[in-house]
Amino acid sequence: MAEKLMHALQYESYGGGAAALKHVQVPVPSPKANEVLLKLEATSLNPVDWKIQKGMIRPFLPRKFPCIPATDVAGEVLEVGSGVKNFKAGDKVVSVLSHLTGGGLAEYAVASEKLTVKRPQEVGPAEAAALPVAGLTALQALTNPAGLKLDGTGKQANILVTAASGGVGHYAVQLAKLGNAHVTATCGARNIDFVKSLGADEVLDYKTPEGAALKSPSGKKYDSVIHCANGIPFSTFEPNLSENGKVIDITPGPSAMWTFAVKKITMSKKQLVPLLLIPKAENLEFMVNLVKEGKVKTVIDSKHPLSKAEDAWAKSIDGHATGKIIIEP
């Protein structure tokens, strides 16, 4: 019997950006033990996808070539591998694929049962596919290093979210407000009203002197910063932090790791905390339920067909998306 083929996009070496994504026909993958085969309905892009292609995350995430990128997917279960207990054919789900293998820019993908959750009918495929990396990064940053209680029972914290109109940022603002935080946010001038609509109490245009200095208009010192932007040194944050303030860096580079080490060694009360996402099914289920209940919304920047996924890739690299970029088969 001939293998069933599917349309996918892949790249064959590091570098090359959107132009290096090639449209190919490849065999539909088969689920192994504890895996499910999904017919994809939506895939969302994250900056880490093109950073892996650029080779920026070697040696942590080496690539086997050719590689079908992207990890955040929603779809329908077509087939289950041996040992799968929680899913059956026909289930609507959202899943996070492994960054080592990717697989999301295709018509079908295999996902691990333990990183797959059911998707209620109130949550559309695009809204769900947007959640895994961006939503879970915001959730982990706020609940773990920042210590926010999302049921609002903790003491009120002052939170700064940089690049608040982006994928992680737009979720971080909404989650912080659920946790009863006072939220200051930075974004570009065109997105100020949008970020206010997410619930931010104060919004700074990052291109103004006040925005560049990250000073709260009401003079508040930040207990935690959910740092989603690039290129801001710790010295800019430091005067704006409370006594035990933390900068939680979601994209830590070498200079952030150096600052983290120095602050630890010198036992500084003000810390830089590099965040490495550890995706968990229960956290993904928690986020899906918040969307279902209308407590958090996924904002979609744009939708692109799989046949033009390279346009979505270029838009993600450009770095000015408001919310999430979605690809649909």
Rank of each mutant, 00 (worst) to 15 (best):
M1Y: 05
N230T: 13
Y222V: 04
I232R: 14
I278T: 15
V110Y: 01
K64P: 09
G103F: 13
A256M: 01
L306F: 15
S165E: 02
N283C: 00
V291W: 05
G231W: 08
N283F: 04
I326G: 05
S30A: 15
L275W: 11
L115A: 00
I68S: 09
A261S: 03
K263P: 01
E127I: 01
P233A: 09
Y222H: 07
E210A: 15
V36C: 08
P69R: 08
D49Y: 05
P274G: 13
S197D: 00
G15R: 09
S307G: 03
I68Q: 10
L5A: 07
V36K: 03
L150E: 07
N191M: 02
E238D: 10
S242W: 05
R190T: 03
N158C: 10
K324A: 08
A19V: 04
G135N: 02
A19P: 00
L175M: 14
K92I: 04
E293T: 01
G323H: 08
E3V: 06
K114D: 13
P252K: 06
V296C: 08
A229D: 14
K51M: 12
A185W: 04
F237E: 00
V117L: 08
K4N: 10
E79M: 10
G188M: 08
I159T: 00
S82C: 11
A321Q: 11
D151E: 00
L40W: 11
A18M: 10
L175P: 09
E113N: 07
F194K: 02
L78S: 06
K270M: 04
D301K: 00
L277H: 11
I278P: 01
D311Q: 13
A128R: 03
G219I: 04
R190M: 13
L45E: 04
A256Q: 12
I300F: 07
E238G: 01
G102I: 11
K155I: 11
L148D: 01
K177N: 01
A130K: 15
I278N: 13
G81T: 07
S98K: 12
K292E: 14
V273Q: 15
G179L: 04
L241C: 04
L78N: 04
L115N: 10
P274V: 01
G323E: 12
G169N: 14
A42D: 05
A129P: 08
A309H: 09
A138E: 04
T143R: 07
K308H: 10
Q156K: 08
G245Q: 00
S197G: 12
N144S: 08
P305C: 11
G179R: 03
L115W: 03
L100A: 15
G102C: 05
P47C: 01
I325M: 06
Y171H: 11
I52L: 07
D193G: 15
S112T: 09
L175C: 10
G124A: 07
S255D: 15
K221D: 06
L61Q: 14
D201I: 09
V183S: 02
P279L: 06
V273W: 06
S242P: 02
Y14R: 03
A314R: 14
Y206S: 02
E243A: 09
I232T: 15
G135V: 10
A256P: 00
L284I: 06
K292L: 12
V96P: 02
F237N: 04
H23L: 14
N158H: 14
A126T: 07
S235M: 10
